[in-house]
């Protein structure tokens, strides 16, 4: 198995793990983290692609894309977290659906 295969397969796995968590975890913080894991997966795929030809120096273009992608992800994560936090401040819970909240339980969330 080549280095490219290893990185791109791990990246694919991370993407799918994030996707699963996004769909199944009701807590907004989990959802935001799930998207972060998925984006790390995409970056892994790109880093793997940068090495597909081999040689001493990797392809700089996927690296530049990853750097741009990281900044975009940092921005959207910051914004999503601020949104989640504001929702928590306004509603007292951090979920999208009221059905995902155990009203019976005591403080927390």
């Amino acid at each position: 198995m080549s280095q490219t295969d290893l990185y791109t397969l791990v990246g694919s796995a991370l993407f799918v793990i994030g996707l699963y968590a996004l769909m199944t975890r009701p807590h907004l913080l989990h959802k935001v983290l799930a998207l972060n894991i998925s984006s790390s997966g995409v970056f892994f795929v790109l880093v793997g692609i940068a090495r597909r030809v081999g040689g001493p120096v990797p392809d700089p273009l996927p690296h530049a894309m990853v750097l741009t992608g990281i900044v975009v992800t940092v921005s959207s994560t910051a914004f999503a977290l601020a949104l989640a936090k504001r929702i928590y401040t306004e509603t007292g819970t951090a979920a999208l659906d009221a059905a995902d909240v155990d009203v019976g339980e005591s403080l927390g969330g």
């Binding site: 959207s76 914004f79 999503a80 949104l83 929702i87 999208l96």
Partner: peptide, 10 residues
């Protein structure tokens, strides 16, 4: 609006 925005964002 905030909950709708969050759903949209995700």
């Amino acid at each position: 609006a905030l909950v709708a925005a969050m759903r949209y964002m995700l």
